[in-house]
Design a protein around this nucleic acid. Structure first.
Lengths: 226, 226
DNA sequence: GCAAAAGTGTTACTCATACACCCATGA
DNA sequence: TCATGGGTGTATGAGTAACACTTTTGC
């Protein structure tokens, strides 16, 4: 058998919705290659942990962030994607709620920060390509799974949800039709709380009813937003 | 840096539509572990080839099959999925047309065969799990991309397409509505050829117009079959 | 002439889309 | 009282779903 010397890493694209914009979590590398460049959080998988455990560990070590949604994205394995060794990276797609946005640089990173995806710095390795893949995944997922709620606070305004969809899908959505449709699914709870953000009529708070969603899903219900 | 000793492999789930049933290509292993078990074709990635090149090479070596459609499926990396070493497998999803069904066992396999997915033998490693993942991917893909045509011969009958959809999606489809909808897409060419399969009225042959499909796709057309 | 598969059209209903005015609050 | 954002209903058209009979061939 050929002696193979390929390393396996994991990298994560962590999205957060912040200041009405889609943000992504990046770290500033403090080791070569690409020392001082911004990059996706990630690192080599340890001998006895699963891929998912590796992502969770790296995210904790490098950024201290708490993940609300995690799924595998894609594996990148071009022979020369890392200038030193051959590294195959299994990448993950993650979403965090605003209440979990608190981050801090730790062991392997000299800095951690949220970046608006429309104003990104140059990224290390092929990470820009990974990020593009993740953005497409998010756009798709938004239309057939209620992942938007993993980007919003537990209690949110309808207008937040609407803006989130418009920001990520990059198109205008009719307010009335959107509300009608989402409410018709019966997976939101209207709370008895209103909040007033500066001027304008105070808005009702809503809560995503996860239990109800999974119940309906069992019964064949399909979340679907164009 | 921790010395990591994880191997990277690729495995492929190759689907073919055969005798009005969905079939998958398996090889009989002639080395341990799981010697003499049936398994997905695949193997370790070489130092200087991409993941995709590795799949194509392994498929050629082990089965001699010609692939008509290939895309990455998922990466499986549980620490104990291989009883000997730690192996992360990047799996691929492939479709072959009937005219490319000719197969033959070669270097690493003692045998190669098509199996109806509803009548599978026990599989090596976690390959049954990989296969389940691929089946779901196929079911999904069938509804939003015209991959069905990569499973049919270049010239096919409408009833073949219909049966393919019913077989894979596991549900009955109204013949009239299905035909109306597919034809309305304008991505099929009706040929001036009829063939008669045993009894019954001879049926028209159709051809998938790939060029037209890509043109329409550019313009925003979405293939969509419920 | 009968069995078998191919081919075809209409209707009802559901769902998506387009669209504009009033309401509650803070300044 | 005005500016700001929140909340709501209706009418039209498109697309989906349900449904059965006629045609062409082989035996």
């Amino acid at each position: 058998m050929v002696r193979q010397n390929i390393k396996v890493a994991v990298d994560a694209v962590v999205f957060g919705y912040k200041d009405k914009a889609l943000n992504v979590l990046l770290i500033k590398r403090n080791i070569d290659p690409f020392k001082d460049s911004w990059a996706l959080p990630g690192g080599l998988v340890l001998e006895n942990e699963s891929l998912e455990q590796a992502v969770v560990r790296e995210l904790k070590e490098e950024t201290n962030v708490t993940i609300d949604y995690l799924e595998q994205l894609y594996s990148f394995g071009d022979p020369d994607r890392d200038p030193r060794n051959r590294v195959v990276s299994v990448t993950y797609f993650a979403l965090v709620k605003p209440e979990h946005h608190a981050i801090k640089a730790d062991t392997d990173a000299q800095d951690v920060a949220w970046f608006d995806v429309t104003e990104l710095p140059d990224l290390a390795f092929d990470h820009i390509q990974i990020l593009e893949t993740a953005k497409k995944r998010l756009q798709n997922k938004l239309t057939y799974e209620p992942v938007g709620f993993d980007l919003l606070a537990d209690k949110f305004l309808f207008s937040d949800l609407e803006k989130l969809y418009m920001t990520i899908l990059q198109k205008v959505i009719d307010r009335r039709n959107f509300r009608k449709k989402i409410l018709s699914f019966g997976i939101l709870e209207e709370l008895d709380e209103k909040i007033s953000e500066g001027r304008g009529r105070p808005a009702n708070l809503f809560k995503f009813n996860k239990k109800q969603y999974f119940k309906l899903k069992e019964e064949g219900f399909l979340f679907d937003i164009k």
